[in-house]
Amino acid sequence: MPLKELDHVVLLVRDIEQGVETWTRLGLSLSHRVNNPDNGVAVAFFIQPDGTFLELVAPTRDDSPYAQMLREHGEGLRLLSFKVDDLDQAVVDLEAKGVKLRGVGTERVFIEPVSASGILVQLWPRDRPHRWRENLAPRT
């Protein structure tokens, strides 16, 4: 089986402050925030005890690709990311089953929504670190 376990979930929100308030009110603890001006987004992370995390993403400018996604699709689930033991083998296995993929040959491989009930699914190698979770990028 290529998909092993959930790694993280990305939700697209209009307002990062409102999103953080919503998810803390629901009982999650904010771990940290990151501003990414290059992509025009503010991001908030809610890391869970098992290592999975919820990632809220909000555009910070109108020309951000995320602002365009909001205009087209509204708020909500943007991405599910699942751990895989071996990215290359997962690609082979999924393609053999007719699953439509994007990013094959790169380190960022996704299952197209047409092959996953309308959801974009990321394949995350189990041994790949998360730059935000492992303190490999500046936080704000």
Rank of each mutant, 00 (worst) to 15 (best):
V41S: 00
R102Q: 10
V10Q: 13
D127M: 05
P125Y: 07
A67M: 06
S117I: 01
Q18I: 09
G76Q: 05
F82S: 05
P129W: 07
L12D: 03
D15M: 08
E112G: 03
F46D: 06
L80D: 07
L11S: 08
H8S: 07
K4Q: 15
D86R: 04
N39L: 07
S31F: 05
A116I: 05
D38C: 00
R108A: 11
W23V: 04
T60K: 06
E95L: 03
V92P: 00
V34M: 06
V57S: 04
N36D: 15
E55Q: 15
P125W: 03
N35T: 07
L54I: 14
R14I: 00
P49L: 13
S64Q: 04
L123W: 00
G105S: 03
M69S: 13
Q68P: 00
R33N: 03
M69H: 13
K97N: 09
V34E: 09
W124Q: 07
R131W: 08
R133T: 12
L56E: 10
L56V: 15
E95P: 00
V109F: 00
R78E: 15
T106Q: 10
G40W: 04
E107G: 14
R25M: 12
T24K: 11
G103P: 13
F46V: 10
E107S: 11
L123D: 03
V57T: 15
V43R: 12
G51K: 00
R25H: 14
M1A: 09
G105H: 01
D62I: 04
V121I: 15
L94S: 06
W132I: 09
T24V: 13
H8V: 03
G105Q: 01
E107W: 06
D93E: 15
V41A: 02
N35L: 06
G118R: 07
S81Q: 09
P49G: 14
N36G: 02
P113E: 10
Q48D: 06
S115W: 06
R131D: 12
D62G: 11
G40P: 03
R128Y: 12
E95I: 01
S115Y: 05
P129Q: 09
E17L: 02
S64G: 06
H32N: 04
A96K: 13
S29H: 11
L77Y: 08
A44E: 03
Q68A: 14
W124P: 02
D93K: 12
N35Q: 11
A90W: 00
K83E: 13
R25G: 14
Q68K: 13
L79N: 15
E55F: 11
D93M: 14
W132P: 01
P129K: 11
L26I: 06
D15Y: 05
L26E: 07
L3N: 05
E107Y: 06
D7H: 13
V91D: 09
K97V: 01
A137H: 09
N39T: 04
Q48S: 15
N35P: 00
V57I: 15
S64C: 03
G98W: 03
E112Q: 14
W23G: 07
D63E: 12
P125D: 05
Q48R: 15
V10F: 05
R126P: 08
L101P: 01
L11D: 08
I111C: 06
S117Y: 13
V84E: 01
E17D: 15
R126F: 11
L70D: 02
G51V: 00
T60G: 08
S115T: 01
M1G: 10
I16W: 02
G105T: 01
A116W: 11
N35F: 08
L70S: 02
G76C: 13
S29D: 13
G98M: 04
